[in-house]
Amino acid sequence: ITIHVNGVTYHFDNPEEAEKFAQKMAKTYQLKMEIHNGEFHME
């Protein structure tokens, strides 16, 4: 699972971890999250 946050790329093997991380980042930084081709993009 690949997550892009403001141009920084994070890779996770565990989908649950990826989702937790994505939600935490979105909440902490008030980010808008989109999913493209199974990759999370946040800005």
Rank of each mutant, 00 (worst) to 15 (best):
I1L: 06
I1D: 01
I1Y: 10
I1E: 01
I1K: 05
T2N: 10
T2D: 09
T2P: 03
T2R: 13
T2A: 07
I3A: 02
I3S: 00
I3K: 01
I3M: 03
I3W: 05
I3D: 01
I3T: 01
I3H: 01
I3C: 14
H4E: 03
H4Q: 04
H4A: 04
H4T: 06
H4P: 01
H4F: 08
V5G: 02
V5W: 10
V5C: 15
V5L: 06
N6A: 12
N6M: 15
N6Y: 14
N6F: 15
N6L: 15
N6E: 11
N6G: 09
G7M: 11
G7F: 14
G7I: 15
G7H: 09
G7A: 06
G7Q: 06
G7E: 04
G7N: 08
V8F: 12
V8P: 00
V8E: 08
V8Q: 08
V8Y: 12
T9H: 09
T9Q: 12
T9M: 11
T9L: 10
Y10E: 00
Y10Q: 00
Y10V: 02
Y10M: 02
Y10I: 04
Y10N: 00
H11Y: 10
H11F: 10
F12N: 00
F12S: 00
F12C: 08
F12A: 00
F12P: 00
F12L: 01
F12V: 01
F12K: 00
D13L: 12
D13W: 11
D13T: 11
D13R: 10
D13N: 09
D13Q: 09
N14T: 08
N14L: 10
N14Y: 05
N14K: 08
N14M: 06
N14G: 06
N14D: 10
N14W: 08
P15N: 07
P15A: 09
P15V: 11
P15L: 12
P15C: 15
P15E: 06
P15G: 08
E16F: 11
E16L: 10
E16R: 11
E16H: 10
E16Y: 10
E17C: 15
E17D: 08
E17R: 08
E17T: 08
E17N: 06
A18N: 00
A18D: 00
A18I: 02
A18T: 01
A18M: 04
A18R: 02
A18V: 04
E19R: 13
E19A: 12
E19H: 13
E19C: 15
E19L: 14
K20I: 10
K20S: 10
F21R: 00
F21K: 00
F21C: 13
F21H: 01
F21N: 00
F21Q: 00
F21E: 00
A22C: 15
A22W: 06
A22Q: 03
A22K: 05
A22Y: 07
A22S: 03
Q23R: 12
Q23M: 12
Q23C: 15
Q23W: 12
Q23F: 10
K24G: 03
K24F: 15
K24W: 15
M25T: 01
M25L: 09
M25Y: 02
M25I: 06
A26G: 06
A26S: 07
A26H: 05
A26W: 14
A26N: 04
K27N: 06
K27F: 11
K27H: 06
K27R: 08
K27S: 07
K27Y: 12
K27E: 13
T28L: 15
T28F: 14
T28E: 15
T28Y: 15
T28N: 11
T28C: 15
T28Q: 14
T28H: 13
T28W: 15
Y29C: 15
Y29G: 14
Y29V: 05
Y29L: 10
Q30T: 03
Q30V: 03
Q30N: 10
Q30H: 13
Q30I: 03
Q30R: 04
Q30C: 15
Q30K: 09
Q30F: 09
Q30L: 05
Q30M: 05
Q30S: 04
L31N: 07
L31T: 04
L31S: 04
L31P: 09
L31Y: 09
L31C: 15
L31M: 07
K32Q: 13
K32F: 13
K32N: 12
K32A: 13
K32S: 13
K32L: 14
K32G: 09
K32M: 13
K32W: 14
K32P: 08
M33L: 13
M33T: 03
M33Q: 01
M33Y: 09
M33A: 02
E34D: 04
E34P: 01
E34S: 12
E34K: 10
E34R: 11
E34V: 15
I35R: 02
I35W: 08
I35L: 08
I35P: 02
I35Y: 11
I35V: 07
I35Q: 05
I35N: 03
I35T: 04
H36G: 02
H36V: 12
H36R: 13
H36T: 06
H36D: 03
H36C: 14
H36A: 04
H36M: 06
H36N: 06
H36E: 06
N37T: 04
N37S: 05
N37I: 09
N37F: 10
N37A: 05
N37L: 08
N37K: 04
N37C: 15
G38D: 03
G38H: 05
G38L: 06
G38A: 04
G38C: 15
G38I: 05
E39S: 05
E39P: 04
E39G: 04
E39N: 04
F40D: 02
F40M: 11
F40T: 04
F40V: 11
F40L: 13
F40Q: 04
F40C: 15
F40S: 03
H41F: 14
H41Y: 14
H41G: 02
H41R: 05
H41A: 02
H41D: 03
H41Q: 03
H41V: 09
M42E: 02
M42A: 05
M42V: 04
M42Y: 07
M42Q: 03
E43C: 15
E43T: 14
E43V: 15
E43Q: 11
E43Y: 15
E43F: 15
E43A: 11
E43G: 09
E43R: 14
